[in-house]
Amino acid sequence: MTSFLRSVAAEFAKVFTTRLWWILALVLFCYIGLLAGGLGALFAGIQTGVISPDTVNTGGGAATAFGSLPPLVYSFASSVGYVFPVLLGALATTGEFRHQTLTPTFLATPRRGVVLGAKTVTLVVIGAGLGIVALAASVGIGGAVLSAFGVDALLLDSQTWLLAARTLLAMGLWAAIGVGLGVLVPNQVASIVIVLAFTQFVEPLLRLASSFLEITAKIGNFLPGSASDALVGASVFAVANAATVAPLDWWQGGLVLLGYALVATVIGYAASWKKDVT
């Protein structure tokens, strides 16, 4: 157990002794702040009639389709920001292969399962930390913009805080998925390409395509992004896609994400982590 705790402490030190974590956190904050602020203003403007629906050419009738705005705007933290913990997790593992730091790591801690477990625990915590950064942007900036338009930001609403808590859980799980992907695809460049291509292009298309039929929509619920949105409880994608099937329950979404993380990590452990370090 002490060797596990030491490994966790060492994994934290690895992340915080390079620059990547704060660069990602900074970009995440700006990105989510811009989206939550900008789209929050647009949605609130439309909903409150400050912006005429005709101006934004929504075809009319969409003015009230957003439902409650604060959860939608706040959920940008995870629905858009989830790629950041995945990247951090994947870079934390692939970096060990790329810089050959598995050698000193395994010399200090020869139990490789202990190291991978410690890395996962560490990245879950740091992923949740990125969740705090993302929420600071979406709730802080988005909430301020909503208030400016006279929309109740629901900052004292328990549902808002539940959403925030589930966002932290989702971001932590996404980081664990990143760690799993990193051992599954140890090539750093390939790993980054997969993360970006899947999260920014493949999965949104799949979610859109699967939403047209009931049967495919049920399957689409199990895509990691859908599961994450179900866990958090709100997403801009749920508004954008014609919802024909109810999303998973929040806890089901969490289990699906956990499943992806576990499967990737266990297969990756066997495929690369416990192999010869040459």
């Binding site: 030491r6 402490a9 030190a13 050959q100 050698t103 790591t105 200090a108």
Partner: peptide
């Protein structure tokens, strides 16, 4: 104590933090 190849470092870490990581891991 083992020294294997000359390239087992993350280039962005300082020598002190590089060794610090493994000092923590080994207590």
């Amino acid at each position: 104590g083992a020294a294997l190849e000359a390239a087992s470092f993350h280039p962005g870490r300082t020598a002190r933090s590089h060794l610090g990581v493994y000092a923590i891991a080994a207590g």
